[in-house]
């Protein structure tokens, strides 16, 4: 682990459009140059709404550079599927972690922090702290 690479970010949503849209937003707001690797795992393989363990494990493998993978999820089966994959032990890369964070704000914080070279703890903390940004 922590071989000097950036933390990878996986965004899991029931909707492919939401997952890829939030990925695009987070990368855009992370600013300028190259960002940490981000992959979207949205919807089911046939394009429907839902959660796909195969899309999640593929996305995690894609962004895994050895520094850990932070998984952000929307709700329901997305949360349960990632927890189940983590409990299983061998389907997600070593250093994969479910991050407790609001999906959109957490994704932005995670990608910004990972792109700046933050380690997995820093990325997870930044994403979770997004719960504290109240809008009123």
């Amino acid at each position: 682990m922590s071989a000097g690479g950036q933390v990878g970010i996986v965004l899991v949503s029931h909707s492919a459009a939401v997952a890829s849209g939030v990925a695009e937003l987070a990368k855009g707001l992370a600013g300028g140059g190259a960002t940490a690797p981000v992959a979207a795992a949205g919807g089911t393989p046939d394009g429907g709404l839902g959660t796909s363990s195969e899309l999640i494990t593929a996305a995690a493998a894609e962004v895994d550079g050895g520094a850990g993978v932070a998984l952000l999820v929307d709700l329901g089966s997305a949360v349960l599927t990632v927890k189940t994959l983590l409990a299983d032990g061998d389907e997600l890369p070593e250093g994969a972690r479910l991050v407790d964070a609001p999906f959109v704000e957490g994704a932005v914080a995670a990608v910004v922090t990972a792109s700046a070279g933050g380690d997995l703890d820093a990325v997870a903390a930044a994403a979770s702290e997004a719960y504290g940004y109240h809008k009123e």
């Binding site: 959660t51 329901g76 927890k83 189940t84």
Partner: peptide, 18 residues
């Protein structure tokens, strides 16, 4: 079940059986 259901019942029943 975990890999094919696509809803919350997949990880729940999958965990039950596993």
């Amino acid at each position: 079940l975990i890999s094919t259901v696509g809803g919350a019942s997949g990880p729940l029943y999958g965990t039950l059986l596993r």
